[in-house]
Amino acid sequence: MSFSGAPTFQWPPRGFSWRLYHNFFTSPVWLDSLRNSLLVALLTALLATTVGTAAAVALSRLHGRLARFVRTLLMVPIVAPAIVVAVAVYISFLGWRLTGTVPGYVLAHTAIAVPYVLVSVTGALGGFDQRLLKASASLGASPWRSFVRVTMPLISRGILTGAIFAFIVSFDEVVIALFLRSPQFQTMPVQMYNSVTVEIDPTISAASSLMVVAVTIIFLVPQLLRGRARRR
């Protein structure tokens, strides 16, 4: 479909051409939206991974009712309907002047990405022996040094997986992005949405294909790393 020569969404595709890819890579609108998406997703991945890893480490040490409640509370963004979150965030962000801004997108996306980091880092911490930290402390390491030198290397796969999920959650997020968009700033999924609803722009099929390929490659990174680690 993305190689079609036809100017509409015609099926079956007519002819073979790179025209749509050419469109994509020469259109300032599409390229800007791609750049915006990459920027927001990278910042979201950084912030969500930091915040989510800290929370996962904390929750692995805490027990009791309150800790369980906090864990459930932090998972709420996964099950809360995106549209309700989008409406609430939009109304508040209007007042805080955060709509159409990079910080606005990053904050909103981070809030929904943290649970994914929490799940994957918690999984990695499951096999982590807390006694190692006592050993490290008894050898004179500060808690921060113990974390960086002992905990981090052992749970690095969980952190990496979490970062990848956070990136994808943000990169692929449409609903909140549709509400936060401004004429000056929109992300790639929003531009794809526009191209179906407003413009009937077949460039979206090139964009879709690129998106699927990109997401698949990003998802394969941990698999490839695992393969290399095993060979070593």
């Binding site: 915040v51 989510g52 800290a54 929370a55 904390a58 932090l74 709420v76 809030a111 943290v114 929490l118």
Partner: peptide
């Protein structure tokens, strides 16, 4: 936990 809770 504070950053995560503050964000939420």
């Amino acid at each position: 936990l504070l950053p995560a809770l503050a964000l939420l």
